[in-house]
């Protein structure tokens, strides 16, 4: 069995798009060959049990949301700790496959972050397998029950199948960038409607969405 750690770096944990993406990928890895275990890295606090499980894995699947064009801060702490412990351990180094989703429509806004992960692999002595950037991450909560390969996840299905094959063959591949199958303008309209619905749900007025806070010196 190939021990595979599915690492969810979203602070939203089980309810996140990252978890949904990891679930999609898990389905593409034959359970007769892959021992697939999920771990949530939702806080910066390093859990030694999780660290031990990650260290003994042969494949790491890392998924998280793009935060300010980069890796969420709590995940950077995990990456630094993993670099430290992997550099002490020479016997086995897993292959790393990463899936980064962003709230913007264009998947390639995750490109820099995949490079940050590639740089981390270089520092930690890990084998970089492949990265995937996924756009329009805000759509995942709306289509929570839609299976991979069905609209609007047809293109995503194709890209994930390609990455899944690379994982099963232990191969590296070029980064892939994919967005759900609907036009950018439809995503923009849907996202902006969802913010207005949320702000009214929270008992505020629509104009509060535009609120500017006067500076109070710390």
């Amino acid at each position: 069995m190939i021990k595979t750690a599915l690492l969810n770096g979203s602070p939203r944990g089980e309810r996140s798009a990252s978890r949904m993406i990891l679930d999609f990928m898990e389905e593409l890895l034959p359970k007769e060959q892959y021992e697939r275990r999920h771990f949530s890295l939702k806080t910066p606090y390093i859990d030694p049990t999780v660290l031990g499980e990650v260290l003994s894995s042969q494949v790491l699947l890392i998924a998280f949301p793009l935060y300010v064009d980069g890796v969420p801060s709590h995940m950077i702490r995990w990456l630094m700790e993993l670099e430290r412990v992997f550099s002490l351990q020479v016997k086995s180094r897993p292959s790393v496959y990463a899936l980064v989703n962003c709230g913007f429509y264009e998947a390639d806004q995750t490109r820099v972050t995949l490079d940050i992960l590639r740089n981390w692999c270089e520092r930690a002595g890990l084998k970089w397998g492949q990265g995937m950037g996924i756009g329009a991450g805000g759509a995942f909560s709306t289509f929570r029950n839609t299976p991979l390969g069905k609209w609007p996840f047809r293109d995503l299905g194709g890209a994930m199948t390609a990455m899944g094959l690379n994982i099963t063959r232990q191969l590296s591949g070029p980064d892939l960038f994919v967005s759900p199958d609907f036009p950018r303008v439809a995503y923009k309209v849907a996202v902006e409607y969802s913010w207005r619905r949320a702000i009214k749900h929270n008992g505020l007025k629509l104009r509060d969405l535009h609120r500017r806070i006067p500076l109070v010196r710390p």
């Binding site: 890796v71 801060s73 630094m80 740089n119 969405l209």
Partner: peptide, 25 residues
């Protein structure tokens, strides 16, 4: 410089700064 990005603290401050922008696209 951490892997070509910010350190955890600086990134944490930036992550906590997204109210600088408006949610609309």
């Amino acid at each position: 410089c951490v892997y070509g990005g910010f350190s955890p603290f600086v990134k944490n401050v930036l992550d906590r700064s997204i109210s600088y922008v408006h949610p609309d696209l």
